[in-house]
Design a protein around this nucleic acid. Structure first.
Lengths: 312, 312
DNA sequence: CTCAAACATGACTGTGGAGTCAGTAATCCT
DNA sequence: AGGATTACTGACTCCACAGTCATGTTTGAG
């Protein structure tokens, strides 16, 4: 059995790994930045694999390589196989498995990080690696197993059974009271005219949330020029907390803000933008790695539960 | 990622294969009969893997080796991985996948072989390898993926969703009319006293069916001494067909017998021994190899359908 | 057109590990 | 006790392949 895999040379774990690294990095150069030796080696390993299988695994697409359909399948396969071997190794060495958990930057910091200890406990003391990604690429990463779990907007993943609701998110207008007249009410704060006058902090990451906020402001008739344009919502939250400016924050981001010092009201223009965050996973992957669907459902509610007690 | 698998030596496809071969053969010597070089090599490869993983994969059990729990898991893993690589290779080479189909010797010849062309067509032109096994070991072989599909007595496999009924089997007493008086009726033929007088052919394989027949004869008060003791039911069937002697044949075995020349009646003592044959598969394995449950259900009815037209 | 980036290729070296052989140790059978 | 079977070990040889370096080819950007 399997004589054909061994009768002729050209197949080896090293080569498979080389190909996988290229597949994940998207190009040879990015698979081994700054190491031209390794690059030339990977180039050769890919060629040897292609000879072995008698099939094109890559295609030149412009200056870099891209994977053929067969290449995609093989890369997926290799990742699974190495993953399984690594899990076996860790188990035998008495080490915990490790899982890669991804989320957007702010969800990562506000929701995921506080929940990490509980998650690890729930996964049998697993080692956890966090990764910040955009929703789109996060979905892909879960699809092909580069990321094990993701907390992601529900509408960014295909509908299916491999998700579990974590929480619903809405957006809130947060204005430090020092920026307002003494007796401003919530009703007053809902006025675009007021918003026009206030110094704002906003994100500058070009993400879907950021874009939506700017769009909402424009459609509310506000010529929106934030005083601070921050790389992440975390910094926005910080500036609001300092009383330096107003900001639009998601539900997660308002925890820990002192309601006596900051006026917090629902941000009407984005009322319908409020979205569900779900835990998203790859069913094949999870089954292979010994995590049941029930575990994941429980994990989701466990993460949701973490939103309560933990300080921001 | 996966640095630990490559940073230290000791892991290679060759070694994994060596270990797997030993695992499947049950001992090093049987993994490479007559090739002491290969034997010594496998012995070393196993040791190197054990060093790599820092764990016992085997235990000496008497004169031979047996697998530890970890070893069992690893062997399973390796088989899956090599299988996947082999499937990928074949796909790329434009070759059909190959499936291993097992059954008892007589089921194999009478039911499976005639159905092979249809099975292959239904599996997308797959190459098929047949293997004759005892029920017990057949179940194990399916469990750990050495055999892809099996046709096997229902009561020999754990109840579950991974089976599909093929047919019910009963036993028939078959007596060439040349051995009977002119006007013998079916009722007459049901008499143990008659059986005692007839020359019989029976199996000698010690299988469950063979044993049951002999037991049934004894409990019917017949001192059963078959004139011919054959290695397989196929030979029994042949002798009956020649008119040389009587025999007890399963439903499958009476096809093609000429009712004008052979008296065929249900064999009463084994009325309750009649058993269902099911198609049995390993769900993980089939899913991985791209065969859906629905395909398998259809395959089962397709095999059942084959019992009709084909000549024995 | 030039330059740099990304990949490919040819020509080497060194080494890990497959392959071979001979001998030893443990266990079973009779 | 003696022989047969099975596994382990040491001491090699030889080669495939990882690793290195220099150079060639294609492609996109300025």
């Amino acid at each position: 059995m399997f004589e054909h895999l061994f009768s002729k040379g050209g197949l080896s774990l090293d080569r498979l790994r080389g190909f996988m690294q290229m597949a994940e990095a998207g190009s040879i150069a990015r698979a081994a930045p700054g190491d031209t030796n390794r690059q030339s080696q990977i180039s050769r390993q890919i060629r040897e694999l292609e000879q072995f299988f008698g099939a094109e695994l890559t295609r030149r697409k412009g200056k870099t390589l891209s994977l053929s359909a067969a290449g995609e399948r093989l890369a997926l396969l290799i990742r699974e196989q190495l993953q399984d071997l690594e899990d076996f190794r860790k188990e035998q060495a008495g080490l915990p498995k490790s899982f890669v958990i991804g989320a957007g930057a702010s969800v990562l910091e506000w929701l995921l990080v506080p929940a990490l200890p509980a998650i690890s406990r729930h996964l049998g003391g697993a080692t956890l690696l966090t990764e910040a990604h955009r929703s789109r690429s996060l979905g892909d990463a879960v699809q092909d197993g580069r990321v094990d779990l993701a907390i992601i907007r529900q509408n960014a993943v295909p509908a299916g059974t491999n998700t579990a609701l974590v929480m619903k998110m809405r957006f809130h207008l947060c204005i430090p009271r020092t920026l307002l007249k003494r007796d401003t009410t919530e009703r007053d704060a809902a006025s675009p005219a007021l918003w026009q006058m206030l110094p704002f902090a906003a994100g500058r990451d070009g993400g879907q949330t950021d874009t939506a906020i700017r769009e909402a402001m424009r459609s509310a008739g506000v010529d929106f020029h934030p005083r601070f344009e921050c790389g992440s919502m975390l910094q926005v939250r910080q500036l609001v907390g300092l009383g330096a400016c107003a900001g639009i924050l998601p539900t997660l981001g308002i925890r820990g803000l002192d309601e006596r010092r900051v006026l917090i009201t629902p941000f009407a223009p984005l009322r319908d933008f409020g979205r569900a965050l779900v835990l998203y996973w790859n069913p094949r992957q999870m089954r292979r790695r010994g995590v049941e669907t029930a575990d994941l459902k429980r994990l989701a509610s466990l993460i949701a539960a973490q939103t309560g007690p933990t300080a921001a």
